[in-house]
Amino acid sequence: MRNTELARLDGLVGQWTTAMSDAWFLEPKGTEVPGTTTIEWLGESFVLVRTRFSGDEHEHSEMTMVLGRSDPNDAYVALYHDDRGVCREFAMTYDGERWTLSREDPDFHQRWIADVGLDLIRGRWEASEDAGVTWRKDYDLTFERRADA
Results as ranks from 00 to 15, higher is better:
2 R>A: 01
2 R>M: 08
3 N>I: 13
4 T>M: 02
5 E>A: 04
6 L>Q: 08
7 A>E: 13
15 Q>G: 08
17 T>E: 02
21 S>F: 06
21 S>R: 14
25 F>E: 07
25 F>Y: 14
26 L>M: 08
29 K>Y: 02
32 E>T: 15
37 T>C: 08
38 T>L: 10
38 T>Q: 13
40 E>T: 10
44 E>W: 08
46 F>T: 04
46 F>I: 01
47 V>S: 07
47 V>L: 10
48 L>Q: 06
50 R>N: 11
59 E>V: 04
59 E>K: 04
60 H>W: 15
64 T>E: 13
66 V>D: 05
67 L>W: 01
67 L>H: 05
69 R>K: 06
71 D>S: 05
73 N>K: 11
74 D>E: 15
74 D>N: 13
77 V>R: 15
79 L>P: 07
83 D>E: 12
92 M>D: 10
93 T>I: 07
96 G>F: 01
97 E>N: 11
97 E>S: 15
101 L>E: 05
101 L>I: 07
102 S>H: 15
103 R>T: 08
103 R>G: 12
112 W>K: 01
114 A>F: 12
114 A>W: 12
115 D>T: 15
119 D>W: 00
121 I>E: 03
123 G>R: 08
125 W>Y: 13
128 S>T: 14
130 D>H: 02
133 V>P: 00
134 T>M: 00
135 W>A: 09
136 R>T: 00
139 Y>L: 12
140 D>E: 13
140 D>Y: 10
141 L>K: 00
148 D>S: 07
